[in-house]
Design a protein around this nucleic acid. Structure first.
Lengths: 348, 348
DNA sequence: GTGAAAGCGCTAACAT
DNA sequence: ATGTTAGCGCTTTCAC
């Protein structure tokens, strides 16, 4: 919160619209028209203005444009961090889409104002961004409460909220988990452990349900002790896997609810002197870039991360252009990606 | 460049400083003083203002503050993309540092305006950011030419420029490469291939020089055909490794100038049916998070990526607060990280 | 088609 | 310590 004392103005030697107007011999609103596009301006005039601007090296001041015009062509991304493949891929998708509409991106990380989420979001929304994409794992409500009442455009990624009708994009979590579990079953596994995400999360529940459904479908009894809560991160995945390995009889396969957990699980299994996939098969979820890097290459359920980012950005832009547009939820298809980390159980 | 036609103003139901002033019964500059900190305001008045603001749900409009005050407390990061561990780690460092000074971050990707770099940068610099961090692999000059003449604060990461005196932060590339090569030599290798980065890059040259120096020092002849140009990416690393494997006699070790290349090289070596590290040792550079994920875990030269980001941000902030501050170059130490991808050559 | 003028919400002299 | 007044650089009516 500390703001530096010695506020000195930016070296404001910049060429403004007024300079261009003078140089071109027109009024400065004409210059504005030329650069904001779309107004009817005489071709000669336009030419004069553009030449003058080029001569002077004028570039528009987006800040001023934004204040005056009410729009900044900037959207914000609120995320815990961008230090893992999951978010990076999504950001790539967002960036791709924004580039097409000449929008820019601000990055807000959530770890900043713990406990003051609402204030933080409110400040963001009241500032320069035209809309917000939220990739917030926990406590979404805390962030959201500051938003809908001022009907500020936003979209949620992989996060449905019950209270407000929010525009959301996610993937077929249930189906993906079903597919993963079912694949393991088809390989002959019957004792399948699962490492979940945080239980509050929607995606956690959906994936857990998909897992159960596949078990049910194959008439494999659901065993409580084979379900261990993780947190969608490597460390927790590691710990959860260790727990799973202590269950008797030991599971022959583990479904990790995301790849980060799966990677942690791989290490844990190895530490116990067990072999992957020989002794234990492991399947993940997400297909982040690391999934094909680890050894053995991870069999996983692919989420179209880049596309999720793209769609989220597009929905947001639509919402910005047309605030009346009603909230909707777009769910993209997951896909089983078979690599090397799953084989039939030992002795099969 | 297309700007949406239906510019509608942001739902401007927002509470402004004027509303707060009216509610508190003071002039609106007083309100400004309270929220911009530091002015001498009577405690009673301040109290009244804060209460009024809270009652009304006022939050500052950073945009307006920025236009009026000449400072936005936002800095920009210009990078090719953020989709790899190298940049992600740096961004994490930047973000960490910025958080401390309540600065925010804009993300600009370079792939947008190919061929119009100068214009792009100029627009950025003329807009809302107070400064810019550049992580630009190629054609740095194109970006830079628009900057120094308007003495806009910026810092370069891992990129020295000859023409202007730019503030730069990088790592001990020469020493790191020397250490890597020397380590290989100490293991008994004498035919050591190198996959470089793009030859235009400073870091490429420095690392190549370090490699040569280590060879020289051990009186191992430098062999031209053992040097293959890569591009700091996995794909190119793969291709380069393939080339290296065709050299007769075949190298027993490969120094990849960054981890991404090393990862590509690992795959290439495997495709040739060779074993790592048994047949070929591979060493990388950077120590991105993926380095410890691959199999075998990659021996590499660690760059303090997060710290690089932090230092870059700090230097930039200093420069913003004090434009007279002269440019300087901070070089951080690299460190050899021994993992599993290097062993003595076969038959040693 | 073009110019004049009123803001956008705020900061920063300059007064008092 | 607080109020008054100019802007920051632009968009956007409203005239002509």
């Amino acid at each position: 919160m500390a703001v530096s004392k010695n506020h000195r103005r930016k070296s404001s030697n910049s060429v403004t619209i007024v300079d261009v107007a003078r140089e071109a011999g027109v009024s400065y609103s004409t210059v504005s028209r030329v650069f904001s596009g779309f107004e009817f301006v005489n071709d000669d005039t336009r030419q004069k203005v553009i030449e003058a601007a080029t001569r002077l090296g004028y570039v528009v001041n987006l800040q001023a444009r934004s204040l005056a015009g009410g729009r900044s062509n900037i959207i914000g991304l609120l995320a815990p961090a961008i230090d893992n493949g999951y978010i990076s891929e999504i950001v790539a998708g967002i960036d791709q889409e924004l580039a097409q509409w000449s929008y820019d991106l601000m990055l807000y990380t959530t770890h900043r104002y713990a406990g003051k989420e609402a204030f933080y979001v409110k400040t963001i929304a009241n500032g320069l961004v035209d809309g917000l994409i939220l990739v917030v794992p926990l406590a979404t409500e805390n962030y959201l409460e500051a938003l809908p009442n001022r009907d500020f455009p936003y979209v949620l990624i992989d996060q449905t909220d019950k209270t407000h009708g929010s525009t959301t994009v996610d993937a077929t979590n249930w189906q993906g988990a079903y597919d993963a579990t079912n694949y393991l079953i088809s390989l002959g596994h019957r004792r399948i452990g699962i490492i979940t995400g945080q239980l509050q999360l929607n995606s956690t529940t959906e994936r857990l349900d998909g897992y159960r459904a596949a078990l049910d479908h194959a008439r494999i009894p659901f065993v409580e002790s084979l379900v261990v809560e993780g947190a969608y991160q490597t460390r927790k995945g590691h710990a959860a896997a260790l727990k799973l390995l202590d269950v008797q009889p030991r599971p022959t396969a583990i479904f990790a609810s995301n790849d980060l957990s799966a990677i942690g699980a791989i290490d844990a299994v190895r530490e116990r002197g067990l072999n992957i996939p020989g002794d234990i098969s492991i399947i993940g979820f997400d297909d982040i870039p690391q999934a094909s890097l680890v050894y053995p290459k991870l069999t996983t359920v692919r989420q179209p991360l880049v596309q999720i980012g793209q769609v989220a950005a597009r929905l947001l832009l639509e919402k910005i252009d047309n605030p009346e547009k009603e909230a909707r939820r777009v769910t993209l298809a997951t896909e089983l990606v078979i690599r090397d980390s799953c084989v039939p159980p030992p002795g099969e």
